[in-house]
């Protein structure tokens, strides 16, 4: 299970302030802490970043990779900022991941960037027409994204399909639909397609003490269906990831497995 550390997001006040002041120290501290907790990639979410997005993304990518030997998940709707980030990304520790393309024509150029810069890319299974109704619709959109990726020259093994997790508090019936979609996505290709979710969205809007409980239990079910990656807080999910890996036989059991 690949954990993509979600804590470097412009939504967090401390991160936002550091981005505005171009103060590297807090950014690097958070990146380091996520790496030590088991993150295999760091998400750099700079928001829409309409002004100065290119500089900001480059500053984030180089700043993070100065302290952690990990690839970066470039998270913004600003295409120029993504491209700027890709140009400075150090591929020594793995290729960058673009977050994201979808079935919305405005997001198609992201595929072109992935092909040109040999990056991986998340395919969010939503279109211009709004949210998908069920697992079948998600799979149909996934198939369209895959066909388009091949046109642009992006190999299918470089795509992470994202079924779009919705809030349990407002869209309870979508939790099971997302789990089913993760299963269906894999069947769209052989070898199976890779899958990713933004995990904490499930508990968005819920009382704070409930959030880790919802996140971790949802994750266990998703892992059982073969989920490849999560965008999450590695500190919060590490015990679940390790435990499910042991139960599924992906890691050899030892009494101290949680400490590894």
């Amino acid at each position: 299970m690949l954990i993509i550390g979600e804590k470097l997001s412009i939504i967090a006040k401390r991160v936002r302030e550091a981005m505005m002041k171009k103060d590297k120290a807090p950014i690097q501290e958070i990146a380091l802490s996520q790496w030590k907790a088991g993150a295999g990639m760091i998400d750099a979410n700079i928001g829409p970043a309409e002004d100065g997005g290119e500089d900001l993304m480059q500053w984030m990518v180089t700043g993070i990779q100065e302290v952690v030997p990990l690839p970066i998940c470039l998270d913004t709707t600003n295409r120029q900022a993504i491209e700027a980030g890709l140009k400075v990304h150090n591929n020594e520790w793995g290729r960058a991941l673009i977050n994201s393309t979808s079935n919305d024509p405005e997001r198609f150029p992201m595929l072109e960037l992935a092909a040109r810069h040999n990056a991986r890319i998340i395919g969010l299974t939503v279109g211009k027409g709004g949210l998908p109704a069920d697992a079948e619709e998600r799979a149909a959109i996934a198939a369209e994204i895959m066909a388009r990726a091949m046109e642009y020259g992006v190999p299918l093994e470089d795509i992470y399909l994202d079924p779009l997790v919705l809030q349990i508090a407002t869209s309870q019936d979508h939790a099971l639909k997302v789990i089913k979609a993760v299963k269906m996505f894999q069947e769209l290709n052989d070898p199976p397609m890779k899958t990713v979710v933004g995990l904490s969205n499930i508990s968005n809007g819920c009382p704070k003490p409930l959030r880790p409980i919802l996140n971790n239990h949802f994750l266990a079910l998703l892992m059982y269906e073969g989920l490849t990656a999560i965008i999450a807080d590695p500190h919060e999910v590490a015990p679940t990831v390790k435990t499910i890996d042991v139960i599924m036989g992906n890691t050899l059991y030892a009494h101290s497995y949680l400490e590894m």
Binding site: L252, Y253, A254, H255, S256, E259, M260
Partner: peptide, 14 residues
Amino acid sequence: DINLSKQLNILLTQ
């Protein structure tokens, strides 16, 4: 015992 073998290695490194 494969699991104890792994456990002993972990204890040693710890």
